[in-house]
C-alpha cells in the first residue's frame, strides 16, 4: 500500500534522511521506532509532502507521489496526523472533522449530510468528541485533541494513515487509551504507519517494525524478532 525507497530529505541543505526504505502492506500496522533525532518525524513529513524529498521514491498504491504538494498527496488518500496534533484551534470539533473529509465532500453545500456516516463512525470511536462537537478545538485537553487529530485523519476514508507520536505529552492513562484506540483501528483493518517513543507499546500493536538510526533503517523485523535482537533490546526496550 505504501512503499518508500531510498528516501533522502532534509532541511535547508542539512540532510536528515540518508536513504530510508520501508513498506507498509495493506491492512497492517507498522511501527517506526528509534531515538530522538533519528529522523522518524522527517520520514513521515517526507512521505506526506510536508518536506520535499531530495532523492528517492514514495509509492502510494504503486503511484509515485514524491515531489507532489502535500494537499495533492492527501487527496490521493494518505492521511497524516502530524506530530503535535495540529488541530484547527479556532474551529469547532465538528468542523475539524468535516475538514478531515475535505477530499471527498462537496465544497459548498450538502457536505454535512454526506459526512453523516463517517461522523457517526468517528463519534462511536470517540464518544467524548461527540459530547464536545460544538466546542472550539483549541480549548480541548491534550488527550482530546489527540483523539480529534486521529478522528480527523479517519474522516478522509484514507488508504493509509500516518500517526506521528500520538502519545506525545499525554498522561500515562491517556497514553493507554490512545493505544487501545490504535488496537481498535487495527481490528478495523486500517493500514497504519505509527511513529512512537513508547517502543514497547508500539511493538505490542505492530505487525512489523523498523528501527531508525541516524537517518536510516538500522533494523527491521516482526516484533518477536526485534524483541530477540540484543541491540534493539538494550537501546529501546530496556
Amino acid at each position: 500500500m505504501l512503499k518508500v525507497e531510498n528516501l533522502h530529505a532534509g532541511y535547508g541543505g542539512a540532510e536528515v534522511l540518508n536513504g530510508v526504505n520501508l513498506e507498509v502492506k495493506a491492512g497492517t500496522v507498522v511501527a517506526l521506532i528509534g531515538a530522538n533525532g533519528a529522523g522518524k518525524t522527517t520520514t513521515m513529513r517526507a512521505i506526506s509532502g510536508m518536506v520535499r524529498p531530495s532523492k528517492g521514491r514514495v509509492l502510494v498504491e504503486d503511484l509515485p507521489v514524491e515531489g507532489l504538494a502535500a494537499s495533492r498527496i492527501a487527496r490521493l488518500g494518505l492521511a497524516h496526523s502530524p506530530e503535535g496534533r495540529k488541530v484547527f484551534g479556532p474551529l469547532s470539533v465538528e468542523d475539524n472533522l468535516l475538514l478531515g473529509a475535505y477530499r471527498h465532500l462537496p465544497h459548498f453545500l450538502g457536505f454535512r449530510s454526506k459526512a453523516a456516516a463517517d461522523l457517526k463512525k468517528v463519534y462511536d470511536l470517540f464518544p467524548r468528541l461527540e459530547e464536545r462537537r460544538e466546542q472550539l478545538s483549541g480549548t480541548l485537553s491534550g488527550g482530546e485533541q489527540q483523539m480529534l487529530a486521529i478522528g480527523r485523519a479517519l474522516m478522509a476514508q484514507p488508504k493509509v494513515v500516518l500517526l506521528d507520536e500520538p502519545s506525545m505529552g499525554l498522561a500515562p492513562v491517556i497514553v493507554q487509551e490512545v493505544f487501545s484506540i490504535i488496537r481498535r483501528l487495527k481490528e478495523a483493518g486500517i493500514t497504519l504507519l505509527l511513529v512512537e517513543q513508547f517502543a514497547k507499546s508500539a511493538l505490542e500493536v505492530a505487525d512489523y517494525a523498523y528501527v531508525m538510526e541516524r537517518g536510516k533503517i538500522a533494523v527491521a523485523g516482526t516484533p518477536e524478532e526485534l524483541r530477540k535482537d540484543e541491540r534493539v533490546l538494550a537501546a529501546y526496550l530496556g
Binding site: 497524516h80 484551534g89 474551529l91 475535505y102
Partner: peptide, 17 residues
C-alpha cells in the same frame, strides 16, 4: 471552513487536502 483552516494552520490544512 477550509479558508478558516488555512488561516489557522497552513500546514495542517494541506494535510487535509
Amino acid at each position: 471552513k477550509a479558508f478558516e483552516a488555512v488561516s489557522a494552520d497552513r500546514d495542517a490544512a494541506e494535510l487535509m487536502g
